[in-house]
């Protein structure tokens, strides 16, 4: 379906994002790494404030020409998006990399018809007449499962139901057949039944078009359902990543373990929810050690208080397909090597 280059479609390396505020620099993303192959789906999971939305905004280049300080590399097809000028990035937005948002009602212009908004997205990157673009928009609406697309194209966003709006939003994002689609909490604002439909639709369209998807969500259930890979974010870092199977079967980072344990399941009869105690670190004054150390129940397993003094790094090598940013990993690898 796609070319078989060794190069992954997307590679984020050591991405940092900081926002200057009156209270000092807010370090929203602190060394994010991610790779994504063509046609695959990676889930970025994390709680509010873990930097997942900021990461997706940095991916789209939406932080350019703002006060945000973005460093690191975002390689799409080998081109570093972070060093592109706003003008060059603009040519990529919508064409090579597109985005769908959490709340389709506020993300669509209330005064323009749905069809016109999709057609506009097409005309930005394709020199065609308004009429031709509208035809493309109608066709696209049909592909995302909107009945009677010709008539509905003339309707306004407020005349759509929530699920239909998100379908239209997806149509808008995919109309130029981007190589990468970023979906920022695409189902959070929707009913559970509609959620499943939207996720199915995304999956189908992905099969059809070969678009790679970055799915940003706080919902582990959604991740388990649709993603190939997962990156768990905490305090603006990716603390663990791996294939969905491995990560759910064998979570290595204490945060991931806590996250999975806190998920309610139908099996627990009347059992209480198990939240992770404590709060995420302040993003204006990050601790020197592991960002999760203050909430981690396993710091006693690491000697010399290293959890609080030294920030763990990802291991490379054998562990690279399921790395965890935890000192216990480093120790385990060291022991193995000693044996």
């Amino acid at each position: 379906m796609t070319t078989t280059t060794d190069q992954p479609l997307l590679r984020i390396r050591d991405l940092h994002v900081a926002f200057p505020t009156d209270d000092g620099l807010v370090h929203a993303v602190n060394g994010m790494d991610l790779t994504l192959a063509r046609g695959e789906t990676v889930g970025i999971v994390g709680e509010s404030g873990s930097g997942k939305t900021v990461t997706s905004q940095a991916l789209m280049g939406l932080l350019k020409e703002t006060r945000a300080q973005v460093t690191g590399e975002i390689l799409l097809d080998g081109t570093d998006l972070n060093s592109l000028s706003e003008d060059r990035m603009r040519a990529w937005r919508g064409k090579k990399i597109a985005m769908i948002f959490q709340d389709p009602l506020s993300a669509m212009h209330p005064f323009h018809s749905v069809g016109a908004q999709i057609a506009e997205a097409y005309r930005v990157h394709n020199k065609v007449s308004r009429k031709a673009a509208t035809a493309v928009a109608v066709d696209m609406l049909g592909r995302v499962g909107i009945p009677d697309p010709k008539r509905r194209a003339a309707a306004f966003p407020h005349e759509f139901s929530g699920g239909m709006r998100q379908r239209a939003m997806i149509a808008m994002a995919l109309v130029c057949e981007p190589e990468l689609l970023i979906a920022d909490e695409p189902t959070t604002a929707l009913d559970v039944t509609v959620q499943a439909q939207i996720l199915d639709l995304l999956g189908e369209l992905q099969q059809e078009t070969g678009t790679a998807v970055v799915l940003v969500t706080h919902d582990l259930g959604v991740v388990a359902e649709v993603c190939h890979h997962v990156a768990v974010m905490y305090g603006g870092q990716c603390v663990e990543r791996g294939s969905v199977r491995e990560l759910f079967r064998d979570p290595r980072h204490p945060y991931t373990q806590g996250l999975l344990a806190s998920m309610p399941t139908l099996g627990d009869d009347g059992e209480r929810l198990r939240p992770i105690p404590g709060f995420p670190p302040s993003l204006t004054a990050l601790p020197a050690g592991c960002l999760f150390a203050d909430r981690c129940p396993q710091t006693h397993r690491v000697p010399d208080g290293r959890c609080h003094s030294e920030r763990p790094a990802f291991l490379t090598g054998d562990a690279a397909d399921h790395p965890s940013r935890c000192h216990q990993e480093t120790l385990a690898t060291a022991e193995e090597a000693a044996r």
Partner: peptide, 12 residues
Amino acid sequence: EDFMRTARAKGL
């Protein structure tokens, strides 16, 4: 507004 962000994301 959010729709301005969408407009930017389209590449306008």
